[in-house]
């Protein structure tokens, strides 16, 4: 892999009417890699994409794409990038094919080349059946796929995808993932935003979590997963009395690790956070029967990436 930076962001700031949408963001994305920016609604993902794709001016800090400053060298930066924004950006009065050939012509491909390129993309994104229909008759997912195809008419050096799979069915989502993997193999740097950790896990070499305009975590998927407890064992009980007694027993049994024990009074469950669920089950069951009560259910709950996401973004909320 090349070592130069495709995207470099340093102390980047942007506010809207006094409210900070981005507060001192630092990021670096090596050329040829896939980078995922995760964050909840309103985190500032689209704002960052708009700045990096020259649509919006930052209030402070610097941002470069391919080593060029997105503010001062915007025209040169536009030569390197393609973007699929969160809001669709297609011409609804044209057909899908006409949209694609128009973009081809704007990239000076020449008539014949623009047409054959459009044809290939229509097939790749499963739009050939609707190719000659006006885009205003397309479904939401079809518009999304066309929008993506339009970003790939010319192979960019850096591709920005703002929530590319939101609203797509599983099959189309896979098609997008495959397209991203294919481009990455060809050396294209991909910067994508998403709300789905699985997507980041599947595609990205590195991930940053953005919450309320700040980067709250950064690393590979595995590094992020290590940031939260590995899993839970959940013990369920029939009546409140058993539940109360069991809670005391489990807390006693866990000793120092007692803060890993959580209860739910409504559903009469006790959760023990652990990385070794077999050991927890063995010892807790033993101490429960010694204490004369039994659990009515035992479940092992594996952490999902969503837990990581929720934990990371909740931490920030708690701080405020």
């Amino acid at each position: 892999m090349k070592t130069e930076l495709a995207i470099g962001v340093s102390r980047l700031r942007k506010s809207f009417g006094g409210k900070a949408a981005l507060a001192d963001i630092d990021l670096s994305v090596p050329a040829g890699s896939v980078f995922a920016l995760l964050g909840p609604n309103g985190a500032g993902k689209s704002t960052l994409v708009a700045i990096l794709t020259t649509l919006l001016r930052a209030d402070g800090g610097t941002a470069t794409v391919g080593g060029l400053d997105v503010g001062r060298q915007a025209a040169a930066v536009r030569n390197l990038l393609s973007v699929t924004s969160q809001a669709s950006a297609v011409d609804e009065f044209l057909t899908g094919r006409e949209n694609l050939t128009m973009i081809g012509r704007l990239h000076l491909l020449g008539g014949a080349k623009a047409i054959s390129r459009a044809d290939k993309l229509l097939r790749d994104f499963d739009l050939h059946g609707a190719a000659d229909r006006k885009v205003s008759t397309y479904s939401g997912g079809m518009v999304r796929r066309l929008d993506l195809a339009m970003s790939l008419v010319r192979r960019p050096e850096v591709l920005f995808l703002d929530e590319p799979t939101t609203g797509l069915d599983p099959r189309s989502r896979l098609a997008v993932w495959n397209a991203v993997r294919g481009l990455s193999k060809q050396g294209v740097t991909v910067f994508l935003t998403t709300q789905y950790l699985e997507e980041a896990d599947q595609l990205a070499d590195s991930i940053a979590v953005l919450n309320d305009g700040r980067i709250v975590a950064q690393g590979t998927a595995d590094e992020l997963k290590r940031l939260v407890p590995a899993g839970h064992v959940e013990f369920g009980f029939q009546d409140p009395q058993d539940f109360g007694k069991a809670l005391t027993l489990i807390r006693a049994e866990r000793g120092n690790a007692g803060n890993n024990v959580n209860k739910d009074d409504e559903f009469l469950t006790v959760r023990v956070a652990t990385t070794d669920s077999a050991a927890v089950i063995t010892s807790v069951v033993a101490s429960l029967s010694a204490g004369g009560c039994t659990a009515s259910s035992i479940a092992i709950i594996k952490p999902t990436l969503d837990d990581v996401f929720l934990a990371l973004t909740a931490k920030q909320e708690a701080k405020q």
Partner: peptide
């Protein structure tokens, strides 16, 4: 907005 991100 798409046109604005293109080299035109």
């Amino acid at each position: 907005d798409r046109f604005r991100t293109m080299p035109i």
